[in-house]
Amino acid sequence: MIEVDVTLARPGFRLDVAFSTSAKTLGIFGPSGGGKSTILAIIAGLIRPDRGTIRIDGRTLFDASRGIDVRVDRRRIGMVFQDLRLFPHLTVARNLRYGSGARDGDPDDLIGLLELGPLLDRNVGDLSGGERQRVAIGRALLRRPDLVLLDEPTASLDGRLRAEILDHLERLQDRTGRPMIQVSHRLGDLLQLTEELLVVDGGRVVGQGRYPDLMQDATVLPTLRRRGVVNRLRGRTTEAADVMVISGTAIELVTPSMERDPERNVVLEFDPADVALARHRVEGTSIGNQIEGTVTRWTDDGVGVFVEVRLGADGPTVAAEIGRESLVALDIEAGRRIVCLLKRQAIRIL
């Protein structure tokens, strides 16, 4: 259990946040300047708040009223900074050793998991962005921390390297089971890696919970809209280059063509505004995907209506953004059978 209740006042900015979570992976999301990275720095002990408490699994790291402020090196927290803070003149091995002091476990296992073995004798300054990021993650994890904090781990990476780092982080979560808190301005990255979201705006928490629930919260939607709401599904390739299957279902999606071996895992991303709804299947249309589902709930945040639809009988849910006129015309209500229409060109394959 991670418990944070702190206040920090600085000229022109005030952070006042309180949250607790037992999730193994928590994502902190919100606009730039909202306080996301400051929260990580406070938990790590790099910034001292004016008041409050921080506890991890019942262990008090900070309590202003009791005069407790555990030193950074004794908090048992690993942190991956946005600027990495590696030593470019040192080899990968020496950078990793700088962060070690390992408690339990096999460092070779972690090095293998991050595919750092072939890089150990190379200088960090000669590595690619993705390779440097893996070194920074390895250095943080080699201490076997009780908690790992990641500040924008994919911010400076392009699509291919970003996907590579996300894949490595996902494998690390599965293998190590260590709690992680990740900050990102990319909502899609957080949806791939975290169970729960903490939405922060203007130095305060505006919402916490599972993403589908937050999308149905009219008080949180304005913040989500400012950074771009998105649908994200796991899928797998088929023999056809332009057909993907949604994981855990038999539902097929026609997508942009891509050359990958069949039965490979992929991530499919598309915007709620690109999902149209109809009461029945539509004949004579160029839209390649028409998927039957059931409305589970909807919300109106004053700008538009977000309708949550469960695909098939027991598939994943997606969100469709429609106008109020369509809400009335389609007689949208929970339990209503509906057809989701999605153009193939609207789907992004990651």
Rank of each mutant, 00 (worst) to 15 (best):
Q208F: 06
T285K: 09
R260C: 05
L61W: 00
G34P: 10
L214M: 09
G101A: 09
D301E: 11
K343R: 15
F270H: 04
D189C: 00
R139N: 08
I322R: 05
D73M: 02
L147G: 07
G125F: 10
S247F: 00
T21C: 07
V148A: 13
Q133Y: 10
L96K: 00
G105Y: 11
I287P: 05
E115Q: 15
G130V: 12
R51N: 03
D57G: 02
L253S: 03
E3A: 15
T285V: 13
L90P: 02
A41R: 15
E283T: 13
E164R: 10
A18D: 14
V205D: 12
G78M: 01
E259T: 13
R103G: 12
V307D: 05
D69R: 01
L330F: 06
R178L: 14
P118C: 14
A136P: 08
G323M: 05
P316W: 10
L221M: 14
P118G: 11
Y211N: 03
R132M: 13
T154W: 02
V220W: 01
V275F: 00
S37W: 00
L86C: 06
I111W: 03
R85M: 04
E333T: 14
V92W: 02
F270I: 09
L142E: 07
R85S: 03
D146H: 07
A23Q: 08
G323I: 06
L342P: 03
D158I: 08
R134Q: 08
E263M: 11
E164T: 11
I332T: 12
R336T: 12
L253G: 02
A102F: 13
L191P: 03
Q216P: 06
G27M: 09
V254G: 07
E333P: 05
R48E: 08
R75C: 00
A276T: 11
V339F: 09
E308Q: 15
E131V: 05
V72I: 12
R337E: 14
A241Q: 03
R71H: 05
S128K: 12
M1V: 09
L169Y: 08
R236P: 02
T53W: 02
G112M: 12
M215H: 01
R160A: 15
S128L: 13
F306W: 09
I347D: 03
R10P: 01
V4P: 05
Q208A: 09
A102R: 14
I39D: 04
G302E: 12
F306P: 03
R348G: 12
L142D: 08
E269W: 02
L157N: 03
A319D: 10
G323N: 12
R59W: 10
V230K: 02
D57E: 12
R225N: 09
L96R: 01
P256H: 02
L169G: 07
L147N: 06
G138P: 05
R344P: 13
E131R: 01
G34N: 07
L147Y: 06
L90E: 10
G209H: 09
G304I: 04
D271R: 15
D69F: 01
M258L: 14
T299R: 07
G209I: 13
I349M: 10
D274M: 05
V6P: 04
R48Y: 01
Q133F: 10
A136I: 08
L198F: 07
